[in-house]
Design a protein around this nucleic acid. Sequence first.
DNA 1: AATACCGGCGAGT
DNA 2: TCATACTCGCCGGTATT
Length: 373
Amino acid sequence: MTNLRRRAVIAVDLDYFYAQCEEVRDPSIRDKPVVICVFSGRTEDSGAVSTANYVARELGVRSGMPIAFAKKILKSHQDARFLPMDLEYYQSVSERIMEIIRSKGEKFEQASIDEAYLEIGRNDGDDFGLAEDIGRKIKEEILSSEKMMSTVGIGQNKLMAKMAVDSKKPNGFTIIPAGSERLFLNPLPAGKLFGVGPKTEKKLNSIGIRTVGDLASADQKLLSDLFGKKLGPELHEMANGIDESLVLDRPAEQFSRIVTLKRDSEGFDFYDVLKPLCEDLSSKLSYASIKCKSIGIIAITNELKVKTRAKTISEAIQSSDKIQEIASELFSSFFGKQYNPDEGRFKVRRIGVRISDFVESGDSKANTLEDFL
DNA sequence: AATACCGGCGAGT
DNA sequence: TCATACTCGCCGGTATT
């Protein structure tokens, strides 16, 4: 019954990643406001801000903000740069940096394009000494080989490592010593706890919980009643710095592609719009040597409500044409039914395709045999 | 009764 | 202000076995 796992977890976060990639590519923009934009193509400036460097953030630019608003804020800054998101480039930078991190330990997990965890074994009494050395090495190597600033956080689990990262960025290096979790967490507003977003925070506030400390000592039955049998207990554990989740690098379980339409539509010829989305998804499948058994569509209405429909098939597929055929069917019945009294009538602003339920495919002998039988 | 699937929602980058 | 493009996880409801 040695349930006491002594571990040190290092979290690495690449600072303002997309914008920093652009700074590395063109160092002359380093001290200018840099805003990474996803242009939707509806009008000149329609779309949203993906991320921005700290020069722009200090002037008030935030991710998720409409591009037009960011431009208004930076009106008096003629040197500001509004650059279109170049995900392929960021992806290639990310892959090289992830290799640096992965090579420094045995248990590695990539959490997003710019975040990763590394687990380091720890002896009793050893206060993250080894983890600290490795964390510093990672930071140095990312800086020397990619000229990129990063933030490192260390704690006894993924949650605490993440909270350490969030406590000081950019260019941070924070350790939360084992045993001092509550001290660190208690004074924070509940919404700062990883996983507690605006909705959950509002609900917590409504029952008098404002800080993580309040949450840590809240009535557990009340939490379960309000948040369910999973999130309720989990909130209480997290507030106490407890997180047993493993550092584990798993393959993706779904892919999706989505675009904004030129104008809101009630029904349209979706063939042309769907085609490139399905082609992208198909090539991702092919690259990973997998097929999918579930195909879904996503529609975002003019009121920004998300609607989804999905279909599971018995025969796994990979080709763009087959994905597109099923997605088209789903859209047809979706538009066919959108006038029923339940749903009401709405227009669609963005549409997308999603695939999941992956199975191995391709060159294994087992597959050849299965095909034969 | 257990499991699978579906669609909505919340959170994060 | 006028609101992107992803990924993951949970919830409750319903269908399947």
